[in-house]
Design a protein around this nucleic acid. Structure first.
Length: 372
DNA sequence: TATCGCTTTCCTGCTT
DNA sequence: GAAGCAGGAAAGCGAT
């Protein structure tokens, strides 16, 4: 059973990713403003003064649950961050709790905060989206039953470390530089402004050898997990007509416009190409600290590797490609196409075992060390 | 707009 | 029987 403290920590880490630590400095100048403008709550000023040594209280809370003090802290933070003249703000209008704040329209915020209102609105909704996307994980963490744990552990998201149990989450939280990268697998909830929180952001996984990749394949897109965790009506499309008996050979026809619109809510229209399966696989193998239990080298020198959790890798690949219906069967088909191009070589008679071919670059130890 | 390359999806048959 | 492999066919989609 995951305690609320742990959940708070998870959420706090997300918010930390969105609000870089160096930004969360005590807004001392602001305090002076507040002293002048705001006669609301002296206690709040006291809590603001604590920012220098610890995170503000709203860091680890869901916006809906923010107290009035936390709302004020959050607003103050953004006033300071944006070097906004707080004297222009009517702080008597800030006397609202998080629930009320979350129900403010952009216009309302603009009315109260002027130009800062837009910034506040977008920042708030980034955090809210984090909350929404986290909710499924948190639901699972809160449930004590084994089946939920199993779902969580078997999900592609959790497979990343083969170890996203309660305990390992705790471990990861302790200042592990990969923790936030891992979380990006879970939620994909980083704000656009902080999208550099990724594996490659840690400087471990960039793939300069990739000819056409936009980046390391472990660099998951911030919007990925929505798909992974969602199961709305649109998903019915994904299985085609198969439930109505035998379907025609090949990929189903393009969606009607309505269905496409439906899917567009989940799938970015402009998901960058540049993601090659072989690079994704290679990067997993090159970063065992991230993939423990997913794949392993059978013969490092020869480039022979084995899938240990084939479906989990497929799920991760699916997340990367915003495709929640990816399976190992499909992934392996794509892998087999690499034989012809000599990116992979056949390893006969061994299940789940593949070998990098001569057209696959940057997997050899020498190459890896030189590109670091 | 057409084409290309890569990937995805589905399928059948075979092997382990 | 289940899981995995092999490969054909057709289609989606971003890049050029």
């Amino acid at each position: 059973m995951a305690g609320s403290c742990e959940i708070s920590n998870i959420f706090s880490n997300y918010i930390s990713a969105m609000y870089q630590p160096e930004e969360a400095q005590p807004p001392l100048e602001l305090l002076a403003h507040l002293g002048k403008e705001d006669s609301l709550v002296p206690r709040q000023r006291q809590s603001l003064l604590l920012w220098g040594t610890e995170k503000p209280a709203w860091f680890s809370e869901f916006p809906y649950l923010w107290s009035k003090a936390q709302v004020l802290e959050w607003i103050s933070y953004h006033v300071e961050k944006n070097k906004y003249d707080a004297s222009a703000i009517n702080f008597s209008c800030c006397n609202m709790d998080g629930y009320t704040l979350c129900h403010c329209t952009q216009e309302q915020l603009r009315l109260v905060f002027g130009p800062l209102g837009d910034e506040l609105y977008s920042r708030l909704h980034e955090i809210i989206s984090v909350s929404d996307e986290l909710s499924w994980i948190i639901d699972l963490l809160e449930k004590d039953d084994a089946s939920s744990q199993e779902i969580f552990l078997n999900s592609g998201a959790s497979e990343l470390g083969n170890s996203c149990t309660k305990e390992s989450l705790e471990e990861m939280k302790s200042a592990n530089p990969f923790y936030q990268a891992d979380l990006s697998y879970f939620s994909g909830a980083l704000s656009p402004g902080s999208s550099d929180i990724s594996v490659s952001g840690t400087g471990t996984s960039r793939s300069p050898c990739s000819q056409d990749s936009g980046g390391s394949d472990l660099d998951l897109d911030p919007t990925e997990l929505k798909l992974f965790s969602s199961n709305d009506g649109c998903a019915d499309y994904e299985k085609g007509d198969s439930k109505h008996g035998k379907r025609k050979r090949g990929r189903p026809r393009k969606l009607s416009k309505e269905n496409r619109d439906c899917l567009d809510t989940k799938k970015s229209k402009h998901s960058p190409r540049g993601t090659h399966l072989w690079e994704f696989i290679r990067d997993i193998l090159l970063h065992p600290e991230l993939n423990e239990g997913l794949m392993k080298w059978e013969d490092r020198r020869e480039g022979v590797f084995k899938f240990l959790r084939s479906e989990a890798v497929a799920q991760l690949w699916g997340q990367k490609k915003k495709n929640s219906s990816m399976t190992y069967e499909k992934l392996s088909r794509a892998m087999r196409y690499y034989y012809k191009r000599e990116i992979l070589e056949r390893v006969d008679g061994r299940r789940l075992v593949y070998k990098f071919g001569k057209n696959c670059s940057c997997w050899k130890e020498e190459e890896v060390s030189t590109r670091k």
